[in-house]
Nucleic acid binder design. Structure first.
Length: 539
RNA sequence: GCGCCCGUAGCUCAACGGAUAGAGCAUCGGCCUUCUAAGCCGAGGGUUCCGGGUUCGAGCCCCGGCGGGCGUACCA
C-alpha cells in the first residue's frame, strides 16, 4: 500500500469523471504536519486551461473525491492547495504493514525489473585512490542499492584500465625505483609516477621476481604492478563497505578482440577515416566538438576505443541503461561517449553520465594542497583511516553529487562524537535499548487506538513518507534525500521519545508504543543500509 | 577563447517549479531521582551573487553579466 499513489489514483479518476484536461498529477509532502499529510497542486495547474479560479476547481475536485471511504479528508488552502489528512485507521494499517514486511517496507516495482549497470570509481591502477573515488564509491554503492529497492535489476562495475600508455609508464617507473632500491639511481621517466608506493612496488617486484624485473618488458612490469594496485584498491573498497559485482579489465576486452570489432563496426557504418597516419572516429557528426583519434599513428588504440567497446558490451549483455559516475576532470569524456553511443545506434538515453564533483580537502579550515606529481596527496585510505567510513559516507551522501564540497578532515573527526551519522545511529541504538529494557514484553498492533499524541501522529506521518523518499531518491539518483529524511525521522522519533514514555505499567499503551518503535527501527536500519552505513545496536 | 559544474544564514550544506527558504556546526539561554543528555526545548542570524525574462507561482527554468573550480591530448 502506497498512500501517495492511492491519492494520485483517486484524483486521476476524478479528473476523468469531470472531463478535465490531462495534466501531470503531483503529490507532495506538505512542509509541516499542520498542512496535512499529503498535498496536491492540481487545481493551480488547471486554473489556466479551465479559465476558472484555482479555489473553485479545488472545491469541485474535493467534493468529488471519495474522502471518508478511502480514509482521508481534504482541506483546501489558498491559493488552491488540496491538503489531505489521513485517518487513524489508514495509518494503523500502514504501521501493521511495515511491521509485517520489515525491511521490505519502502520497496517498489517502479523499475519493472529493468537491467541497469552502474559504473563508478574505475580509478586507474597506477596510483592510490583519492578522495573523489571515496565520494563516487559512496554514491554509486547507494544508488545501486536504491535502484534495487525501487525494482530495478541493478549491477555495479569497476572498469580497470590495465593496458596502454599509463600502464607502460607505471612499469618504467617501477623499474627505475627497482634500480634505486638496488643501489642505483632512479631515473623516473617523463610523466612517470613519483609516489612512495612505487618504491614499495619495486621492492615487492624484486622480492617476487628477482632479476627478472630487469628483463621483462615495461608493459609486463606495468601490468604486474597494476594488478597489485588493483588488489589494494579492492581491499580498501571492501573495508569501506563497497563491493562491485564485477571488476571489468580493459585487457579482457582485448582478449575478446572487442576494440577491433567495435572499430570495424564503426568503420562499416562510415564513421571512421584515416588522417596523418592516425585513425579517427567522426564523433563531431554526433555532437562532439571535434573528431577523436581512436588508433594513433603508431598503431596503438587510445583509451577511447576500448571504452566504446566496453559500453557496446554493456548493451550486448542486456543492460537497458548504463549509468557512469565520472570525476570532474573527465567531464569532456561524456560528450565523446555519447557521440559513440549515437553512432552505434544505442539511443540517446542508453548512457547516462553523472559527474561527481570535486572534493576540496581541508584541515581545520585550511585547504590541503594536493600535488599528484610530487606524490603529495591524501589518499582514500589515509582519509578513511583518519575519519572512519561511516562519517565519510555521511558527508558524501548528505550532499548532491553536483555540489563542489569542502571536506574538512578535522571537522569530520572533531565532531565525530556529535556528527550527523551518530545522530542516526544513536536513535537506532536507543530503540534497541528500549527493546532490551522491555524485557520480553512484545509489541503488538491490538491497541493502536491508544496512540493519539501529536508526537505519535508526527511519527506515523514520517514513517509513511519513507516509500516516497526511496522512490524519488532512486529515480533521481539522489541518495542525499534518504539522508535528509532519516535525520528528520530521527528528530521526530527523539521528540516522541522525550514526550511519550514507552515502557509503562499500561500494557496496552506499551505494546502500541513498542510497535511504533519497531517500525522506526526497521526504517532507520533499512535507510542506513541504503546509505551503506552501519546501524549499531549499542553505542 | 570555447565547454561543463558551482554561487543560499558567520561556516558546511538541504530544499519533485509550490505554502512562512530549512538542517547541522558555531553563538546565547533552559532541561539529567524516570526506557541511552551522542538527547530534548528555546533565541538570534537571509537582498538565495547581480540584472532582465517565462509562469497563477522562480533559490530552481531561459537570456545576459560577475565570481570560483574544472576541462579543452595521437593521457585516462
Amino acid at each position: 500500500m502506497n498512500l501517495t499513489e492511492k491519492i494520485a489514483r483517486d484524483i486521476r479518476v476524478v479528473l476523468q469523471t469531470l472531463e478535465y484536461p490531462e495534466v501531470p498529477i503531483v503529490i507532495e509532502i506538505p512542509p509541516e504536519p499542520k498542512l496535512g499529510d499529503r498535498s496536491c497542486t492540481i487545481a493551480l495547474a488547471l486554473a489556466k486551461p479551465l479559465k476558472r479560479k484555482p479555489r473553485d476547481i479545488a472545491e469541485t475536485i474535493a467534493a468529488a473525491l471519495p474522502q471518508l471511504e478511502n480514509g482521508y479528508r481534504v482541506e483546501i488552502a489558498s491559493p488552491g492547495f488540496l491538503n489531505f489528512f489521513f485517518s487513524d485507521e489508514i495509518y494503523h494499517a500502514l504501521l501493521k504493514e511495515a511491521l509485517d514486511i520489515g525491511a521490505e517496507y519502502g520497496s517498489s516495482q517502479l523499475g519493472l525489473g529493468e537491467k541497469r549497470l552502474f559504473e563508478y570509481v574505475s580509478a586507474n591502477p597506477t596510483g592510490p585512490m583519492n578522495i573523489v573515488s571515496a565520494r563516487a564509491a559512496a554514491i554509486g554503492d547507494s544508488l545501486v542499492k536504491l535502484q534495487r529497492k525501487a525494482g530495478f535489476d541493478a549491477y555495479s562495475e569497476f572498469y580497470v584500465n590495465d593496458t596502454g600508455k599509463q600502464v607502460k609508464l607505471l612499469g618504467e617507473s617501477v623499474r627505475a625505483r627497482a634500480a634505486e632500491v638496488q643501489g642505483g639511481i632512479a631515473e623516473i621517466p617523463e610523466g612517470g609516477y613519483h609516489g612512495d608506493y612505487i618504491i614499495d612496488l619495486a621492492t615487492a617486484a624484486l622480492a617476487e621476481m628477482g632479476d627478472q624485473v630487469k628483463v621483462i618488458s615495461d608493459e609486463e612490469l606495468g601490468r604486474w604492478s597494476a594488478d597489485k594496485i588493483m588488489a589494494t584498491q579492492r581491499t580498501i573498497l571492501q573495508e569501506y563497505g563497497v563491493e562491485f559485482d564485477r571488476w571489468y579489465r580493459e585487457s579482457e576486452l582485448y582478449d575478446a578482440k572487442m576494440p577491433q570489432k567495435t572499430l570495424e563496426k564503426l568503420r562499416s557504418a562510415g564513421h571512421i577515416y584515416e588522417e596523418d597516419g592516425a585513425t579517427y572516429f567522426r564523433s563531431s557528426d554526433f555532437g562532439d566538438d571535434e573528431d577523436r583519434v581512436v588508433v594513433t599513428s603508431d598503431g596503438r588504440p587510445t583509451y577511447y576505443l576500448p571504452d566504446i567497446a566496453y559500453h557496446l558490451d554493456k548493451a550486448e549483455r542486456g543492460f537497458k541503461k548504463a549509468i557512469d559516475l565520472l570525476g570532474p576532470d573527465h567531464h569532456g569524456h561524456g560528450k565523446r561517449m555519447q557521440a559513440a553511443m549515437r553512432a552505434l545506434a544505442l539511443g540517446d538515453d542508453f548512457l547516462e553520465i553523472i559527474i561527481v564533483q570535486q572534493v576540496n580537502l581541508m584541515r581545520a579550515g585550511i585547504p590541503v594542497r594536493m600535488s599528484k606529481r610530487a606524490g603529495e596527496i591524501v589518499s582514500m585510505k589515509e582519509l578513511l583511516d583518519e575519519v572512519g567510513a561511516d562519517a565519510a559516507k555521511q558527508i558524501f551522501l548528505s550532499r548532491r553529487w553536483s555540489s563542489h564540497l569542502d571536506f574538512d578532515i578535522e571537522a569530520a573527526k572533531d565532531r565525530s562524537e556529535r556528527s550527523p551519522v551518530f545522530y542516526l545511529q544513536y536513535a537506532h541504538a536507543r530503540i534497541c535499548s528500549i527493546f532490551c529494557k522491555a524485557d520480553g514484553r512484545a509489541y503488538n498492533t491490538d491497541h493502536l487506538n491508544r496512540i493519539n499524541t501529536e508526537e505519535e501522529r508526527n511519527l506515523l506521518r514520517s514513517l509513511s513518507i519513507f516509500p516516497d523518499v526511496v522512490a524519488s531518491a532512486a529515480m533521481q539518483y539522489a541518495p542525499n534525500r534518504v539522508n535528509s529524511y532519516l535525520n528528520e525521522l530521527a528528530t521526530v522519533f527523539s521528540q516522541f521519545y522525550h514526550h511519550c514514555r514507552v515502557i509503562t505499567e499500561d500494557d496496552g499503551l506499551t505494546s502500541a508504543r513498542l510497535a511504533m518503535c519497531r517500525a522506526v527501527q526497521i526504517v532507520l536500519k533499512e535507510g542506513l543500509r541504503l546509505l551503506g552505513m552501519s546501524a549499531p545496536e549499542k553505542m
